[in-house]
Simulated scan of single mutants.
Amino acid sequence: MSERPERIFPMSRPAGHVPPIARYSSRFDHRPERLAVLFMGIAAEEGGRAALALSDFLAIACRSADAPAHFDRATFLDANGRRNSVAALYWPDRSAYGRWVETPDVAAWRAGHRALAEDFGQWWEPVNVAPDRSETIAFAEYRRGLSACPFSRLEQMGETGYWGAARDRIPASGWDRLAGEVASLVALGRTSESRGLRLAIRPPSGLAVIRSGVSWSACGAEQRESYERNVRPKLDAGMEYLRRNPVETGCPALRQVVLTDNEGGELEEAYSLGLFLSLGHLEAWAKDHPTHLAIYHRAMAERRKYQEALELRTYNEIYVLDEHAADFEYVNCDPSVGLIPYFAARVLASGT
Rank of each mutant, 00 (worst) to 15 (best):
I137D: 07
S25I: 00
H70T: 00
D288T: 13
A15Q: 15
T314G: 04
P10M: 06
A286V: 02
L277N: 09
P10G: 10
I21M: 12
W285K: 00
A130E: 14
A115T: 04
T136C: 07
Q122W: 04
E323F: 11
V209I: 13
C333S: 11
A107F: 15
D119H: 04
E159Q: 14
A69Q: 05
A221N: 06
R143W: 13
C333E: 10
R7A: 02
V214T: 15
A284L: 06
P335K: 12
G121L: 03
L321D: 05
A325T: 07
P10Q: 07
E6Y: 09
A79S: 13
Q223P: 02
S64R: 06
P104Y: 14
D78C: 02
T352D: 13
W91F: 00
S217T: 11
S184T: 14
G196V: 00
A36E: 03
L207S: 05
R99Y: 10
R133G: 04
W285V: 06
W175D: 11
E268P: 13
S205T: 14
S25H: 06
A74T: 06
A270L: 09
I201F: 01
D288K: 14
Y296D: 12
R153Q: 03
V337D: 07
L54W: 06
G158V: 02
A53T: 11
A253S: 13
R177H: 15
D236H: 15
Q122G: 01
A326M: 07
A166W: 08
